[in-house]
């Protein structure tokens, strides 16, 4: 059991390290773009709302593999010089995950009584101020649990990059099978690896929930 892991340690280490990087970079970018898209969807400008709605409806109903395929092969077809596979994978994961974060933000905003935003507008705050000072801080509490589900899904979704020559953890089984190692044990260790990565997310969620507990 252990020898499967220890004998191939560099393979596991490098694979998971790339997974972590994919996850962190795509996670941060998705939070930024997803929140902006969420703001679009609740904005007073119809064109922005329309864009947000269209984006979400298309991306949520497209298989992630297809988004990857579009970026990797579509771009190649169109002779677009894309950066290396890592950044292309980050792009695909971000484009896809932003749609889900957008929805989490939007439904979180909808949990806040309309009178809160109205009072903020009546005081003279701009749309962005209303959102960032009054609405989002209150919505945050409702946002955390579904946001964590989206982030955990993102972590698992990083394994799709393996199919596009990104050597993250999802590519370990293929490499191990070439080396003639036991597939079942390999998968066991990969599962353990992902569980270990999820633990900090759970603690992050606990911490955030405690911090936003209402007075």
């Amino acid at each position: 059991m252990f020898s499967v892991l220890t004998d191939n340690w560099p393979l596991f280490r490098d694979g998971f390290w790339l997974t972590i990087r994919l996850f962190l970079v795509s996670g941060v970018l998705s939070l930024v773009f997803g929140t902006a898209l969420g703001a679009f969807r609740v904005s007073p400008v119809p064109a922005l709302r329309g864009f947000g709605t269209g984006y979400v409806n298309i991306l949520r109903n497209t298989p992630l593999t297809l988004v990857f395929a579009f970026l990797f092969f579509g771009a190649a077809k169109m002779d677009l010089a894309l950066p290396n596979p890592f950044w292309t994978a980050v792009g695909a994961l971000t484009i896809y995950t932003s749609a889900f974060i957008c929805e989490v933000v939007r439904s979180g905003v909808n949990t806040i009584a309309p009178g809160q935003a109205e009072a903020a507008r009546a005081v003279g705050m701009s749309f962005v101020q209303v959102l960032t000072i009054v609405v989002l801080p209150q919505a945050f509490r409702a946002i955390i649990p579904p946001l964590m589900s989206v982030l955990i899904a993102l972590l698992k979704n990083t394994t799709i990059a393996a199919g596009f020559s990104v050597v993250e953890a999802g590519s370990i089984p293929a490499a191990m099978s070439e080396r003639g190692e036991n597939q079942l044990v390999t998968l066991f260790w990969i599962t353990i690896g992902f569980l270990i990565l999820i633990v900090p997310l759970i603690f992050l969620q606990r911490w955030a929930e405690r911090r936003t507990a209402v007075a």
Binding site: G115, A122, G124, S126, V134
Partner: peptide, 29 residues
Amino acid sequence: AKLRADVGMVFQSFNLFAHKTILQNVTLG
């Protein structure tokens, strides 16, 4: 926004900012 700042509004349901203290509610604007 400037106009709204010059026109105060008091609502039936108060609509105080729930996540801010009483003092912050008054200083925020």
